[in-house]
């Protein structure tokens, strides 16, 4: 009996979670004439005309490229920076280590919205407004703390003897990082890549703030084009949302196993 109640509750939660996605997909595939039907009605005759329109006239091909470029660079650079910093924190002794750890901790505590204006000023002072580089720097700076902690917790699970054995074998710290530690850190690497890619892919605030020119826009900003003060292009918004969601969903499905392992690394011995 208890099991059935549990299943029912889980079922309701699952429906609540999935229904916005299903409704969005339905709307994106409906011809305009079917929009008068209630939104939960499935499309009677399927059409991809909205996808084509959004991709070409809506500028989504350009936005997609911009988003992909920023997200991929974000993810790759974040893996390198965060893993190197975490390696130093875990395996090396140096002056000022504690101060650095505290600074990273502070980085975790400050919300982006609280520092939006100073961030804007800094990016502008570097002349990086309306450049991909400006957004990438801001993304990296704002998220590096959490990934340093994630890598640190993973590295703490790496037996110290491995590091020592490599030192005895004659490896430099960078050789140990590259040839001994990183090859076994796949779960942490995948988790960082996925999360940073996802955050970068979905972020609206920084892109809206730091890139005002149309040719520099990303998908999340591009979606706003379908929403005016008085009107709303529902089919355009829906197909744009689906276009934006597909890469992320595919990535998660593909790397799910590694992702879960990375998130739980360091939780138990």
């Amino acid at each position: 009996m208890g099991r059935w109640v549990l299943l029912f509750i889980l079922g309701v939660i699952a429906i609540l979670m999935v229904s916005p996605l299903v409704l969005t997909v339905f709307t994106s595939l409906k011809p305009t004439t079917e929009l008068v039907n209630p939104p939960w009605y499935p499309p009677i005759s399927l059409t991809f005309e909205h996808y084509v329109r959004v991709w070409t006239e809506g500028g989504f091909s350009r936005y997609f490229f911009n988003t992909l470029l920023i997200s991929v660079v974000d993810a790759i650079v974040m893996i390198v920076i965060a893993s190197l910093a975490a390696y130093a924190m875990v395996f090396m002794e140096f002056r000022g280590k504690l101060v650095l750890q505290v600074l990273f901790l502070i980085g975790l505590m400050i919300p982006v919205t609280a520092i939006v204006l100073p961030l804007f000023q800094i990016v502008r002072s570097f002349g990086l407004l309306n450049t991909h580089l400006g957004v990438i720097f801001a993304d990296l700076a704002l998220a590096v703390s959490i990934f340093v902690f994630m890598f640190s917790s993973f590295f703490m699970g790496v037996p110290k003897a491995l590091h020592e054995a490599a030192r005895i074998d004659g490896a430099t710290e960078f050789q140990i990082y590259r040839r001994v530690v990183m090859p076994i850190a796949t779960p942490a690497v995948v988790t960082t890549a996925l999360l940073e890619f996802l955050w970068s892919w979905n972020d609206l605030l920084l892109r809206l703030l730091l890139m005002t020119k149309d040719e520099m826009r990303t998908l999340s900003v591009g979606l706003l084009n379908f929403q005016g003060t008085m009107t709303r292009d529902v089919t355009g918004l829906s197909s744009g949302t689906v276009i934006m969601a597909i890469p992320v969903v595919l990535l998660f499905l593909f790397f799910q196993r590694h992702f879960v392992r990375g998130m739980t690394a360091g939780a138990v011995k």
């Binding site: 037996p159 003897a161 491995l162 020592e164 054995a165 490599a166 005895i168 004659g170 490896a171 001994v180």
Partner: peptide, 27 residues
């Protein structure tokens, strides 16, 4: 350690898990 020209065998073996036996020995 690398300048001392010593080798060490650890209690926990400390073998590199991603490398083969040959790669471990030739590292």
């Amino acid at each position: 350690p690398r300048q001392r020209d010593i080798a060490m065998v650890f209690q926990s073996y400390a073998l590199y898990p991603q490398m083969t036996v040959a790669e471990n020995m030739g590292f």
